[in-house]
Amino acid sequence: MMNIHKILKLLPHRYPFLLVDRVTELVLGERIRAYKNVTINEPFFTGHFPGKPVMPGVLVLEALAQAAGLLSFETMGEAPGDDKVFYFVGIDNARFKKPVVPGDQLVLEVSIDRIRGGIHKFKGVAKVDDQVVCEAELMCTMRPFDTE
Results as ranks from 00 to 15, higher is better:
Pro56Met: 04
His48Asn: 03
Glu78Tyr: 01
Val132Cys: 14
Phe88His: 09
Tyr15Asn: 14
Asp83Asn: 15
Thr75Glu: 00
Arg114Thr: 12
Gly29Pro: 04
Val132Glu: 12
His5Ser: 09
Tyr87Asp: 09
Pro53Leu: 07
Arg143Gln: 07
Arg22Glu: 14
Gly124Asp: 03
Val54Lys: 05
Glu148Lys: 13
Ala79Asp: 00
Pro56Cys: 09
Ile7Asp: 10
Met142Arg: 14
Glu137Ala: 08
Glu25Val: 11
His5Asn: 13
Ile4Ala: 02
Ile4Gln: 10
Lys52Met: 11
His5Trp: 04
Met142Ala: 15
Leu71Phe: 01
Gly77Trp: 01
Gly81Asn: 10
Leu18Thr: 03
Gly118Ile: 11
Val128Trp: 09
Thr39Phe: 13
Leu8Cys: 15
Glu30Cys: 11
Ala65Leu: 06
Lys123Leu: 06
Gly118Ser: 03
Leu8Tyr: 13
Ala63Ser: 15
Ser72Met: 13
Thr75Phe: 03
Lys121Gln: 11
Leu59Val: 10
Cys134Asn: 00
Glu135Leu: 12
Tyr87Gln: 06
Tyr15Asp: 14
Val128His: 04
Gly117Ile: 02
Asn37Asp: 12
Val101Asp: 05
Leu28Val: 07
Glu109His: 15
Glu30Tyr: 06
Pro102Leu: 03
Asp104Ile: 03
Lys121Thr: 11
Gly57Lys: 05
Met2Gly: 11
Thr147Trp: 11
Asp92Asn: 09
Leu19Asn: 06
Leu106Phe: 12
Gly118Glu: 06
Met55Ser: 05
Ser111Pro: 03
Asp130Phe: 09
Arg22Ala: 08
Val107Lys: 01
Arg116Phe: 13
Ala67Met: 09
Ile32Lys: 13
Leu106Pro: 06
Asp21Val: 01
Phe45Glu: 05
Asp21Cys: 13
Met139Pro: 04
Thr24Gln: 09
Ile112Tyr: 05
Val23Gln: 12
Ala136Cys: 06
Ile115Val: 14
Val27Phe: 02
Leu18Lys: 04
Val128Cys: 04
Cys140Val: 09
Gly90Asp: 12
Pro53Met: 13
Ile112Trp: 08
Gln105Cys: 12
Leu26Ala: 09
Arg143Cys: 05
Ala63Glu: 07
Phe86Trp: 13
Gln105Tyr: 05
Tyr35Pro: 02
Lys127His: 02
Lys52Asp: 15
Met1Ala: 14
Cys140Thr: 10
His120Tyr: 15
Asn41Cys: 05
Val27Cys: 15
Gly90Gln: 08
Ile4Ser: 00
Leu8His: 01
Tyr35Arg: 00
Cys134Val: 01
Val125Glu: 15
Gln131Arg: 10
Phe49Leu: 00
Asp92His: 12
Asn93His: 11
Glu148Cys: 06
Met1Tyr: 11
Gly90Leu: 03
Pro99Glu: 04
Pro43Met: 08
Leu138Cys: 07
Pro16Ser: 00
Leu59Pro: 05
Asp92Arg: 02
Ser72His: 11
Gln105Asp: 00
Thr147Lys: 12
Gly47Thr: 01
Cys134Gln: 05
Leu64Gln: 02
Val85Arg: 14
Val38Asn: 10
Leu138Tyr: 02
